[in-house]
Each structure stands twice: as structure tokens, then as C-alpha cells.
């Protein structure tokens, strides 16, 4: 069974200009341990798809099944628990909490797990070490470089050891050299078994992944780079 099973999801928004289909029926599977790039131009629907996979945005129709759980069958608060347990997010622009230091930012997802403070510190220290920031745990976000903030954001996303890691344009705010380092970090995590779905519109990134999902006008575009696409 696939880790993620997306079944004909549609998303219709009711805007001022009538109904707008952000997603027009999308289906695909993601296997455990894959590193997938979700690509498409601005407004193509990839952010909608990402938040839908991230258990935050119910589809108008269709289903998203993760690890055998139809996540939009879950009540709202159970879905919050699901996000905490199954999913890690690296948001655009890092989105660290400005008044928490690196260590505290990384510990944030653990604050709701009931783990002891000592255990939380141990886990957060380990992931900060892993992303190369072992010595900067007590720095506030504004005392870190962009690349370092990105690493803290990644550490925060994986501290809970979620089965799936989502990253939304993780290199968008970084220079190319730092961006390269971050991509290497993601590749390293993937080699260690982490399933990763990364949104990007940067075609250069394609060389780093075995598989990509292209989306255009709310539907899958299977004409692009067929060698990177795997039939559903």
C-alpha cells in the first residue's frame, strides 16, 4: 500500500467572480521513502495541493489517504493530532517564532506531545546537531543567517520524526550556494529514509529528485519530463 494515496481530489473556491477550480481532479500515489518534487507555475494549484496533503485544506471532492487513514474523514481536532504525529512542515520564509530561540523553535512541536522537558531538549539537540546548528541553540531567529534559519525550520519539521516531510519553496529565500546546501540536507534526510514532498518552481531542482509531479491549471501535466513521472 502506498504511503500517500490521492484520489481524484477537486477544490472549488467560491470567489467574487463565481466558482474557481483550484484543483480539477488530481490523483497520484507516493511511496514510503520517496523524494518528490511538486512543480508548477504560480497559481497552478500546487500550494492548494500541498495544504490538502498537509491535512489543512479539505477537498471539495475526492480523498487523501495517508497510511491507510482517510484524513478528511477525521474530525477537525483529530486532524490536528494527525498533523502533529504524521507530518512535518518547512514553510516558505522559514516562519520561525521570533521570540523563541533555535532550541525552543525546534521544541515547539514537542510541546504538545507530553514529553518531558529533558526528553524534548535531548531530541531537539539531536536534530539541531543533525542540521549543523548544534552550537546555535540559544540564538534567536534574528541572530541567524537565512541558511541557518532554514536549517532551524527543517530541524523543527523533523524533530517529531514524522513519516512525511513537506517543504514549500525551501530555497526560495536563499542564495544559490546556500540553496544548494539546503537541498543536500534534504537529500541526506531522504537517504536516511525520510519521505519528502517539496514544492518548487525551480526547474534546476529536477536533477535532484527521481520523481516529480507537474501541475498546471489545477490538473496534472503528464507531458513534462515524462522520464520523471511515474504512472498512477
Amino acid at each position: 500500500m502506498s504511503l500517500i494515496n490521492v484520489k481524484d481530489v477537486k477544490k472549488i473556491y467560491n470567489g467574487g467572480e463565481g466558482e474557481v477550480a483550484a484543483l480539477g481532479g488530481v490523483s497520484f500515489n507516493v511511496e514510503d521513502g520517496e523524494f518528490i518534487s511538486l512543480m508548477g507555475p504560480s497559481g497552478s494549484g500546487k500550494s492548494t495541493l500541498l495544504t490538502m496533503l498537509g491535512a489543512m485544506n479539505p477537498p471539495t471532492s475526492g480523498a487523501v489517504i495517508i497510511d491507510g487513514i482517510d484524513i478528511y474523514d477525521l474530525p477537525n481536532e483529530k486532524r490536528a493530532d494527525f498533523r502533529s504525529e504524521y507530518l512535518g512542515f518547512v514553510f516558505q520564509q522559514f516562519q520561525l517564532i521570533p521570540y523563541l530561540n533555535s532550541m525552543e523553535n525546534v521544541m515547539l512541536p514537542l510541546a504538545i506531545t507530553g514529553k518531558s522537558n529533558r526528553e524534548q531538549v535531548k531530541m531537539a539537540s539531536a536534530v539541531l546537531e543533525k542540521v549543523g546548528l548544534g552550537s546555535k541553540g540559544n540564538r534567536l531567529p534574528n541572530q541567524l543567517s537565512g541558511g541557518e534559519q532554514e536549517r532551524v525550520a527543517i530541524a523543527r519539521a523533523i524533530v517529531n520524526e514524522p513519516p512525511i516531510l513537506f517543504a514549500d519553496e525551501p530555497t526560495g529565500a536563499l542564495d544559490s550556494k546556500t540553496g544548494e546546501e539546503i537541498i543536500n540536507l534534504f537529500k541526506q534526510l531522504n537517504r536516511e529514509g525520510q519521505t519528502i514532498i517539496m514544492v518548487t518552481h525551480n526547474p534546476e531542482f529536477l536533477s535532484h529528485v527521481k520523481r516529480a509531479i507537474f501541475i498546471r491549471d489545477g490538473i496534472l501535466d503528464e507531458t513534462k519530463h515524462p522520464e520523471k513521472q511515474i504512472a498512477v
Partner: peptide, 16 residues
């Protein structure tokens, strides 16, 4: 708003 959005996204329940 953003901060609370992040809390919610990483799994904080409403009650929290």
C-alpha cells in the same frame, strides 16, 4: 496570525 497559523499547522489543537 501567522504564528498561530504555524501552531495550528504543526498540530496544536484549538484548545491549546
Amino acid at each position: 496570525t501567522r504564528e498561530i497559523g504555524i501552531f495550528r499547522a504543526i498540530g496544536f489543537r484549538k484548545s491549546r
